[in-house]
């Protein structure tokens, strides 16, 4: 019996915890939609290209970090190796894109 109530208690605890997490997820989602609208607005709004491009790129990066850290739980325990590998991948990816956009005779 005691064991049973104990596990119920645990269940309750985790449920609360998941609920708390879910709240952050929804906030994350709201911010991502907001960022998308801002980026969209900037482009439609006909501002200078040198202003718009850096801003929308930053917005994209922040959105992706949201996805990685909240939606994909990279902020939780046991994600050290995944983080290492993802960011190593990002490192290789950045070098690749940099090279293909700068030293390819264009």
């Amino acid at each position: 019996m005691a064991d049973n109530t104990n596990s119920n208690y645990q269940d309750q605890f985790f449920k609360e915890k998941h609920k708390e997490e879910m709240k952050y997820q929804v906030i994350t989602f709201a911010m991502m939609i907001a960022f998308t609208i801002i980026a969209f607005g900037l482009v439609v709004g006909d501002f200078s290209k040198y202003l718009v491009v850096p801003i929308i790129l930053v917005l994209a990066v922040v959105q992706v970090l949201f996805q990685l850290y909240y939606f994909m739980h990279l902020n939780q325990k046991g994600h050290e190796m995944p983080s290492l590998m993802i960011f190593s991948g990002v490192f290789a990816a950045v070098l690749t894109i940099l090279a293909l956009t700068t030293i390819t005779w264009i």
């Binding site: 690749t96 090279a99 293909l100 390819t104 005779w105």
Partner: peptide
């Protein structure tokens, strides 16, 4: 053509 060279050597 240089794109191939970059990707191949990456």
């Amino acid at each position: 053509e240089i794109i191939w060279e970059h990707i191949f050597w990456i």
